[in-house]
Design a protein around this nucleic acid. Structure first.
Length: 222
DNA sequence: ATGTCGCATTCCATGCGA
């Protein structure tokens, strides 16, 4: 919840903060050492959607300006319930909003947990995911449609290699077996892609004590 | 082998979402 976010502690480290959280599940935030402007909360396109899954802000640092969105795309499982159409509808809304943001023709990063495995090489065991909401053809098609607007998948701008994952399930020793999937993505507008210097996946954090099941993926723009 | 984890409620046990 926004009220429970450790705002003062993190501000004391020099960050500006924008959060959009809610009780129990869902929540996104942007932390920036440069000032945040034009903070927008919630994904447009459905006034009845109350889930806290989208936040964006403009980050300005001298002559540099980048618009950053933090997304938590719905998981969509189990397929066959209302959860999957909610995911697909959310992806349609993200597509429409992203198309509008591209009109600014400025550096733009759409970052977060997409809950999408883009291709077979992005899973250690793709056969295990064929009927899953993260990998169904319709899911992948909507992710590809987003890219087709003109975005660059930052990691794929730097390598064609498989075996690069950002999530390992807690169950069945997935981490120890390196049974992972790549579902956390940074999508770059053309103006952001032109600034891309480096992409790093922080595997060390998944090996730490009491880790998240996700691990960070980081880009450098300059 | 739905095998783990965090959270909230029905509150020390269970259901849910991931």
């Amino acid at each position: 919840m926004d009220e429970a976010f450790p705002r003062m502690e993190i501000e004391a480290l020099g960050y500006n903060i924008a959060t959009h959280g809610q009780k129990t599940f869902n929540g996104v935030a942007i932390l920036s050492k440069a000032p945040l402007e034009d903070v927008r909360i919630g994904l447009p396109g459905d006034e009845t959607d109350s889930q806290a899954r989208y936040i964006e802000a403009v980050i300005s640092h001298g002559a540099w300006v980048v618009r950053v969105a933090s997304i938590y795309l719905p998981n969509g499982n189990p397929v066959g319930t209302e959860k999957y159409p909610y995911k697909l509808g959310w992806m349609d809304r993200l597509h429409a909003h992203a198309a509008n943001l591209l009109k600014f023709e400025e550096p733009l990063v759409l970052a977060g947990d997409y809950n999408v495995i883009p291709a077979a090489r992005d899973a250690a065991d793709p056969a295990a995911w064929t009927a899953d909401a993260l990998f169904l053809p319709q899911t992948r098609a909507k992710f590809q449609a987003l890219l087709n607007l003109g975005f660059t998948d930052a990691l794929r701008a730097t390598t064609d290699a498989g075996g690069l994952y950002t999530f390992w399930d807690y169950q069945a020793g997935a981490w120890q077996r390196n049974n992972g999937i790549r579902i956390d993505h940074l999508l770059l507008s053309p103006q952001a892609a032109d600034l891309l210097c480096d992409v790093t996946i922080d595997r060390d954090m998944r090996a730490a004590e009491k880790p998240s099941d996700h691990t960070p993926i980081r880009i450098t723009l300059a």
